[in-house]
């Protein structure tokens, strides 16, 4: 931009402002990390400092020793993986069909993505609870997987349609003229081109299921079935000082999968947002 080239006036102020933002954005994260590295004795000293005096990884080891934490991590992994796999398996053929054979369903799917943003969760979760209760799926991981699948699907459909549109129809037609059957065309021509989109959709579905809290809170009562966010919230003695270290360590560990996977799809997600914003 022209302002940047001229530089000069106001630039130190701009850097000061940017620094202010960096501090605001980073300090809670830094504090979480700092707390995770402190010994129980230092936590109890009631004189909190940024740099731990005797940095230790004991809190992480302790988090791994907590049986209910590892069990919940397993539950979260199982639920999020299954929900993400099912989301892709169901959304991919649907997205392909919706794009290749245009229909009103296309617009309806997008409309539902928008409508579902406006409605408060309480309106959906009470009836959902009643329905799942009738099906004996309350307090089961299967019920939760089903719910996550349902709430991932509209966005996944919308995301995958963009990728399907990117595969030129002529390419498919050329392949079938060369005598390849429809399934073979799909397998050898379309599938490889869609792979990045499938990966992005899968990761998106995994992250949102891994992070989800509300539905898990309402649907899961048995501590043995709890997902990681639930167990973190119920972490015993979270308000006492002694257990804050392990809690911070566990919270950090719980964030790693989402953060790492988000880094992979970040560019695509923001690019989508950018495109949408410009059009709007």
């Amino acid at each position: 931009m022209s302002t940047a080239r001229r530089g000069g006036v106001g630039t130190p102020l701009k850097y000061l402002a940017l620094l202010g933002y960096l501090v605001f954005l980073a300090f809670p994260l830094a504090w979480l990390a700092s707390t995770a590295l402190k010994t129980p004795r230092e936590m109890a000293s009631l004189d909190p400092t940024w740099i731990p005096r005797h940095p230790t990884l004991a809190n992480f080891a302790e988090a791994f020793r907590e049986q209910n934490l590892t069990q919940s991590a397993g539950n979260s992994l199982l639920v999020a993986l299954t929900a993400a796999v099912l989301t892709v398996l169901l959304a991919l053929p649907a997205a392909y069909a919706l794009v290749r054979f245009r229909s009103v369903l296309n617009k309806l799917a997008l409309a539902w993505v928008l409508v579902s943003q406006v409605f408060p969760f309480i309106l959906v979760i009470i009836p959902l609870f009643m329905i799942l209760k009738q099906l004996d799926l309350v307090n089961t991981r299967g019920g939760l997987i089903l719910v996550y699948l349902t709430f991932n699907l509209p966005f996944a459909l919308w995301m995958l349609q963009g990728y399907v549109r990117g595969v030129p129809k002529e390419l498919e037609e050329a392949a079938s003229v060369d005598g390849a059957g429809r399934l073979r065309v799909l397998r050898t021509v379309v599938a490889p081109l869609l792979a990045p989109g499938v990966v992005a959709t899968f990761l998106f579905a995994f992250i949102s299921s891994w992070n989800e809290f509300m539905f898990a809170l309402v649907l899961l009562k048995d501590p043995d079935l709890a997902t990681l966010p639930l167990t973190l919230v119920r972490f015993t003695g979270a308000d006492g000082v002694a257990r804050l270290g392990p809690l911070a360590a566990a919270a950090l560990l719980a964030t790693i999968p989402s953060l790492a996977l988000f880094a992979v799809i970040q560019r695509r997600l923001t690019a989508g947002l950018l495109a949408g914003a410009v059009k709007g």
Partner: peptide, 9 residues
């Protein structure tokens, strides 16, 4: 990318 629960904690 962070789980809302972790942000709260």
């Amino acid at each position: 990318a962070m789980p809302p629960v972790v942000v709260g904690l």
